[in-house]
Design a protein around this nucleic acid. Structure first.
Lengths: 136, 136
DNA sequence: TTACAAATCGTAATGATTACGATATGATGA
DNA sequence: TCATCATATCGTAATCATTACGATTTGTAA
């Protein structure tokens, strides 16, 4: 996802443009992988010494609600990354060292032979973990 | 997994037999689904009024290390269930309401067309979430 | 420029988990 | 059976991520 695109979404939805929000988006754009709230806090603290948890978490949740950020849970901590912007549903390989991802195009739900008659299927999670070439 | 089998593992590995440990195993046997540490704490508190967090978490981790319990992370909280005892690698449907599971025999790793040359693949997670027939 | 809703700050509360010294208790051998 | 000792448990505090909220600041639109 492009940064302009994200800022346009914010504007269109009636949210204010703030420098912090731009910095948050720049952070995720630069980092290009899954990052935690405290990663973001550390980054923003350099520029804004007294930044509040409220600002961090409120904006992370907002960006997630607006589909600007994707989220997953790794090791008990929520992680965020810029939405891939793929139109098609997909999954990710995630590097345990640097958090960077690689898209997996095929979805396991297409290969399930199990019978789920009588069940309501809401969603699913498929993630592959390991080390990317640069971290190896 | 049978309870006797679990108690045998404990004994063989040189751990002590205690009533609390038996109660913990009975709890997971009875519940038959993913449960949290606080579910277990609530259960054990009925019988042991002053039970310690230390006891809960130490035993959950021990049982997990001994492959007596399987674990997954749901909604930011670790959940535990008795190991299925399936010899074959498999995955689970998990009911969001009652925590009960249904095995999924096929593994998505067998259907991936992606090229992971240069990557080290360590593990993966595939879980399907929804509601089971009794909870619908 | 003003007014107001939205955004942020500062800080405390919450909830899950971990930590640890003190005490109690299974298991083993005499 | 009893003594011993390592293991298990207790009681409680600390830690870490996250949420909450009243007070203050700041974009934005009129």
């Amino acid at each position: 996802m492009q940064l302009e695109q994200a800022l346009t979404i914010l504007k269109d939805e009636g949210y204010k443009y703030t420098e912090k929000r731009e910095d948050i988006l720049n952070f995720f754009n630069k980092e290009d992988g899954y990052r935690t709230a405290s990663d973001l806090l550390n980054y923003l603290s350099k520029k804004y010494s007294g930044i509040s948890y409220d600002t961090i978490y409120r904006n992370l949740h907002l960006f997630h609600d607006l589909n600007i950020l994707e989220t997953t849970e790794l090791g008990g901590e929520k992680h965020f990354r810029l939405s891939c912007g793929h139109d098609e549903h997909h999954h990710h390989f995630i590097c345990k060292s640097c958090g960077k991802t690689k898209a997996i195009e095929s979805c396991p739900m297409n290969h399930i032979r199990q019978n789920f008659d009588g069940y309501y299927i809401e969603n699913h999670k498929f993630e592959v973990y390991g080390l990317c070439p640069s971290c190896l």
